[in-house]
Design a protein around this nucleic acid. Sequence first.
DNA 1: TTTGGAAATGTTATATAATAACACATTCAC
DNA 2: GTGAATGTGTTATTATATAACATTTCCAAA
Lengths: 171, 171
Amino acid sequence: MPDTSIPTAIAGTRHDHSRCISTAMTTARSLCAQKGVRLTALREQVLHLIWQSHKPLGAYELMEQLARETTRRVAPPTVYRALEFLLEQGLVHRINSLNAYVGCTHPRQEHATNFLICRHCGVAIEFASVPLESSLQASADELGFIIEAHSIEVVGSCKRCADLGGTSHEH
Amino acid sequence: MPDTSIPTAIAGTRHDHSRCISTAMTTARSLCAQKGVRLTALREQVLHLIWQSHKPLGAYELMEQLARETTRRVAPPTVYRALEFLLEQGLVHRINSLNAYVGCTHPRQEHATNFLICRHCGVAIEFASVPLESSLQASADELGFIIEAHSIEVVGSCKRCADLGGTSHEH
DNA sequence: TTTGGAAATGTTATATAATAACACATTCAC
DNA sequence: GTGAATGTGTTATTATATAACATTTCCAAA
């Protein structure tokens, strides 16, 4: 099991990621209880693995890690079903441009999927912006389009990587 | 070969799509000549097929249509390489949420990939918005993120489908 | 006009991502 | 406890994309 006690970078800022994870797990449990849906052991384990990674995690990477943690064999449907549940509950997001999954930082609010994705370190920073949403709405209105959902995926350099000079690196 | 002379709906408005296609092809040819890159017969054929469809086209659908038009066998790399070229030249866009490709309506300008996608009829409407871009930039600035590219994919109902009552249908 | 190298395409195999279909197990309300 | 609903296991398959190498085409310099 990876050490989660080291401060690591998420959302481009230094922080103790182990706290981050435990908060997310607590929130998830209470949210599921509230909604009357079952956050089973498997689903919780998958959510935990996703949160442990500071990068979006692919379904097959997730499968491998799951197989490593448990003894039993883990087949694709196992993780995909867990992911489906977590997506439905708004506990994780899917990054379409990466075919990868990442924990949602504020699952209590209704919101869209907006991410800044660093090309260098791979971090995916979730963000929200009222002006952004309203200009999007304005564009849709002009064309008579009714918005149901949307996703914004921005690729570039996060602050840390930009400061370090834009050379390829991990952190 | 599908009849392209019938007015069909793209970008949510009625128009003669055959004109649309021929304009796109002419622009593509001159743009490639300008840049000194080769719009080969195959690439042109792929671009044409993409434009003929009023919905985003998957790579394998494209393969089938290509195989139907030509006699020779068409393998995945053939279409993927053509797509790669067309994407590089900004002549087509990839819709990540659909794994599908669509013709770019204004390949001369530098711009992002912003689409309104109708859940009912499948049409993908490209749009641009200055306020949208600037609020996105503002969000990135706040976090010290340097934007290199972005894509916005909005799902909902286009005007036609909304007017028709939101029931499932094609047009 | 030849020719040689770059670019494009063909070909075969394989990697990666996701789902279908059905069997078995667990949970929970009655 | 029982049975219906929900969740998980298992096997097979579909869908999407790329790697690696062979062959062809094109174009520019000799």
